[in-house]
Write a protein that binds this DNA or RNA. Structure first.
Lengths: 205, 205
DNA sequence: CCAAAAGTTGCACGGTGTGCAAGAAATATT
DNA sequence: AATATTTCTTGCACACCGTGCAACTTTTGG
């Protein structure tokens, strides 16, 4: 089940450095606030030169968004593993719900809340979602094999992601220190929002 | 019908400079490409000091997005003027369709296409949409007077805007030099996308 | 053990964004 | 009309950003 996966020292070092930088960025964001620290500080805390930081990320905000990025990454790969015949919306709902369970969600809530006070961070997050959207559109287009117009696909995918975003927003707005299972709470909201979408937002329940 | 609206020289000058800067930015973007010019160049072309530029905009990209911003501005005010009883989706469809007619659309298509090649510009655009979304959510919440959950409202508004964005995207992707009425072409797509949303994306027509 | 490949680092350089204080222009006051 | 006041512009200084480049160190593979 687990092939050796011969990860050389090269690769491992890169992974470690990347982690270290991301972690340093997050720590700093927690202690000093979202936009209130410099790349040099991140680099220093990660035990790496300023120049090396820029070999890994284009900006401080990008380093903060590693979590977001990996969440979306997971959602995409989860979606692409759905059976072929399944209705689109069902597949997407299932994929997002599954992803919500797996991830370490506390960080996402934090980031969402931080973004409210930091335009740069917000922009970076929006960008991450946008890139994910593009990839999903591509996946869906491929999945449907020309059976739908580009407009249909991009409107659909955009709407689904908007619902997911709304769910996370709503979820993150609740008490930061969560009672019980955060995954369940988020998943519930995702399913709820996507059900609303499915019936065309007919009733404002 | 047209009250004098005594606009002092102060205000008028500010409006003019703002226009001049935005125009200069757009001209430069057209000739040199989206991310390939500096603030100093914009300022020079607008006949203004570098420092003054930053009194009006936070970045070159923000100056480019004046059009986008005003489009959304118009859509919002158009929406807020809809009759109170009207179903939400109808009101939004009407507002967006009306806005699509009025605006000078060529520029929007241009900007959409430019954003594809300039991460910074794209981020700025996404940010503009996001701010508009927040305002619309507020307006809708107010409009419904507590009759709907926050999740419902933000999922709905997000989805509607995603459809509008998808419509513009699809529209902008067509021949840059448009045959006939651009407004009609865009409006048609908006209505189409929003109809798909209304029936829950049931058929991938 | 050595040579090629890949990664890190310092340096330099042009660009960004903002606080500040001095000056110029528009507006208000007498 | 002359002056006082508010508002906007501008230059300057400064810290920070992002990247090309060349030297250096580590990993890898023969």
């Amino acid at each position: 089940m687990e092939p050796p996966e011969p990860v050389g020292r090269r690769e491992q070092n890169k992974i470690d450095t990347r982690r270290a930088i991301a972690e340093a960025a997050l720590t700093l964001a927690r202690s000093k606030g979202a936009g209130s620290f410099t790349v040099d500080q991140i680099a220093a805390r990660a035990g790496v030169s300023r120049r090396t930081f820029f070999n890994y990320f284009h900006s401080a905000e990008e380093a903060l968004n590693v979590s977001t990025e990996s969440f979306l990454e997971l959602a995409i790969s989860s979606f692409s593993r759905r059976p072929a015949g399944e209705p689109l919306l069902d597949a997407m709902i299932a994929a997002l719900a599954a992803t919500a369970k797996v991830q370490d969600l506390a960080v996402h809530g934090e980031l969402f809340r931080m973004a409210a006070g930091s335009p740069e961070l917000l922009r970076a997050q929006l960008h991450a979602w946008e890139r994910a959207e593009a990839r999903i559109i591509e996946a869906v287009t491929h999945h449907l094999q020309g059976g739908a117009s580009p407009l249909y696909v991009s409107a659909l995918v955009g709407s689904v992601l908007s619902c997911a975003k709304a769910a996370m927003h709503d979820w993150a707005a609740d008490d930061p220190d969560r009672h019980g299972d955060a995954g369940a709470a988020l998943e519930e909201r995702m399913v709820l929002a996507l059900s609303m979408l499915r019936d065309g937002f007919a009733h404002p329940a």
